[in-house]
Design a binder for these strands. Structure first.
Lengths: 113, 113
DNA sequence: GGAACATGCAACCAAAAGGTTGCTTTTTGT
DNA sequence: ACAAAAAGCAACCTTTTGGTTGCATGTTCC
């Protein structure tokens, strides 16, 4: 199980994760959920100007991207944060930065010649 | 100029950056561009099944998000990578992870009691 | 000057996104 | 048993997205 292969497989799943984070409302949901406690839809709707149904849709988007996970508990469904997908794209962004930094370094040494 | 204020100002710009990365085609463009050299639209179109116009649109999306920057040089417009926006969302994701880790730690110590 | 190249611009199109409203179903608490 | 709470389901609407084709404009180079 090479690292390379791992990131290749994960590659297809990256765009949806970025896309899921590409919305202010969903970013604020993530901000609340990553604090740890699971929240019900009704609770998560609090503070937003949107309807419960709209929030539900956003939560499903996050869920499809794997960023969040829901379990029905009684009459409410509780959503909780899942760290892996975000860790994965962080690693990806690290690669991008690294690649860029290498370029800068190379450029600098070229100028210094 | 507090750190807090800096990230508050940047906050509005975060979602568009994530959104811009939420597409396979654009991710692959970023992957090419972060290697350092500027590329023309025609060059960036190579290897994609899409038309030049489609690629142009994707590049404009990246540009609006600040991830990329274009300068007209003669008859071609050369696009080059800009690192800041991606650095910014990396920092943001670090905060999310950190918040989550704190929760795990708190949870663990609770269980241990 | 004119052919070939690189883009820009615009109209158009289908599908997806982001919302809403309205109604049903499941659970709870008294 | 029943009212209220929480969520699911579905239809509908508007705007955005991702793509196309067709044509105009600006540059290069011989």
């Amino acid at each position: 199980m090479s690292h390379k292969r791992h990131s290749r497989v994960a590659a297809k799943r990256r765009a949806p994760v970025f896309a899921a984070l590409g919305d202010e409302t969903r970013l604020s949901l993530v901000a609340r959920l990553c604090a740890g406690q699971p929240y019900s839809i009704a609770e998560l709707t609090q503070g937003h100007k949107l309807t419960r149904q709209a929030i539900t849709k956003h939560l499903r988007v996050l869920e499809r991207a794997g960023i969040v996970h829901s379990i029905r508990r009684g009459r409410e469904s509780r959503f909780e944060f899942v760290a892996e997908p975000i860790e994965a794209i962080k690693e990806y962004l690290d690669l991008v930065s690294e690649k860029w930094d290498q370029t800068l370094t190379r450029l600098k040494s070229f100028v210094e010649d």
